[in-house]
Computed example of a mutant assay.
Amino acid sequence: MNHRGLGDVGSVSEVGYGAWQIGGDWGEVTEDEAVAAVEAAREAGVDFFDTADVYGDGRSERIVGETLADEIASGDVTVATKAGRRLDPHEAERYTEANLRRFVDRSCENLGMETLDLVQLHCPPTDVYYRSETFDALATLADEGRIANYGVSVERVEEGLKAIEYPGVETVQIIFNPFRQRPARLFLEEAAARDVGVICRVPLASGLLTGALSRDDKFPEDDHRNFNRGGEAFDVGETFAGVPFEAGLDAVDALGERLPDDRPLPEFALRWILDHDAVSTVIPGSTTPDHVRSNAAASEADPLSETEREAAAEVYDEHVRGHVHQRW
């Protein structure tokens, strides 16, 4: 497993583990399955784990905290969590120091940590990025030792660009994959120039870029790939990276026609992301240990060839760009 710098957070595995699936919104996942997935990631060399307080109302945090308790205590892993989506209503003016302190204290308890390694604002309303008092509150919590570092998780490139104007923001988490290519230009350049760590989520486009989904697939009622296809529950960009399901399958078929047979599609997608030097870590999620291990192995895979890069650009332009590029 290779490592990269994540702002002032430190060195982390360039393939991390995204713990949304073990919390909720992906169908039923048993406790044993969740623990096995986290253990498989750790055994594969992953030392960066990303969770949030709303994933299963704290379930994901608790499983990560309990499963990795020894590694957390020894400092052998870095755990990032997120705060803000517990607000109801979810409004910019409610991102106050009092509310953030309450969320941080709860996450400390869930994870079994006195000081959180990294707290990220969890896709807040755009107006939050124009409220300096919210970032002052995070700085206060850092000064008090409740959090070691803070950053943001954003929906839009413009939000990320605004966030990194605040000097204390060490990381930006953003959707970036072969079906969401816009961050590759200005955003990654600016993040690198400011030494801001970049965490890439939804790297496999909710399963589209595994090549395992088909037009006949039906998803459980409690799976966001069923209930959020039109953005009914949260930003539609979190589901299939914002690409309509049928269009995404067409794009996958087109990739299959252009890519070499010896490159598995998930490895291709993860390598496409990692081949951008400004990326710090990519956080695929899975509840299948074999998939977790193969995702981690992408760290050691060969960089993409010119043919593969051209295929990614062509398929994006032909099948995907019109659905996502100017929206996020």
Rank of each mutant, 00 (worst) to 15 (best):
I174M: 11
E232K: 05
Y166V: 08
H224D: 02
G237L: 12
H122E: 02
E165C: 03
A212D: 15
N226H: 14
R156T: 06
R182Q: 15
R180W: 07
E232D: 13
L204H: 07
A142F: 01
E189N: 10
G168R: 00
G237Q: 11
T210G: 10
R225G: 05
I147M: 10
R156A: 13
F234C: 02
E232A: 14
G112K: 08
R201T: 07
V169R: 08
D136V: 09
F227S: 01
P125C: 04
T134M: 06
R180Q: 15
G230E: 13
T126M: 00
F179D: 03
S132P: 04
V157K: 03
H122Q: 03
P220E: 08
R180M: 12
L204Q: 10
V236F: 02
I164T: 07
L188D: 03
D216K: 03
Q120A: 05
A137L: 07
F227I: 02
G237Y: 03
F176H: 13
P125V: 09
F135Q: 03
P124G: 05
R131W: 02
D235P: 01
M113N: 01
N177P: 10
P124V: 08
T126E: 04
T140G: 12
R131E: 06
E159C: 11
S153G: 14
A205G: 12
A184G: 13
G160N: 11
I147W: 07
P183D: 13
V198D: 08
P178V: 07
G207R: 11
Q120I: 05
D235H: 12
R194K: 14
G231Y: 09
A163W: 10
F227K: 03
T171S: 15
A193V: 02
S132I: 03
V172S: 01
I147V: 15
A192F: 11
A142N: 04
L208V: 08
G197K: 11
R225H: 05
D195V: 01
L141R: 01
Q181S: 06
E158C: 10
G231W: 12
H224Q: 06
N177A: 11
A139V: 00
R215Y: 03
S214L: 00
P125A: 06
V128Q: 07
I199P: 04
Y166M: 01
E238C: 01
D222M: 12
F219E: 00
S214H: 06
E114V: 00
P183E: 09
D127Q: 11
Q120N: 10
E144F: 07
L161W: 11
V169Q: 04
V196Q: 10
A212N: 14
Q173V: 03
I175L: 13
F179N: 04
V196A: 09
R182P: 00
G230I: 00
D235T: 01
R229H: 02
F227P: 02
V154N: 14
P220D: 11
A184T: 09
E114D: 15
E238K: 02
A142K: 15
D217I: 00
F135G: 01
L186M: 13
D195S: 09
D222C: 12
M113Q: 11
E144Q: 15
L213W: 10
R194D: 08
E114H: 02
E144L: 06
D195E: 14
I147E: 08
S206C: 05
L213F: 14
E133A: 11
P183Y: 14
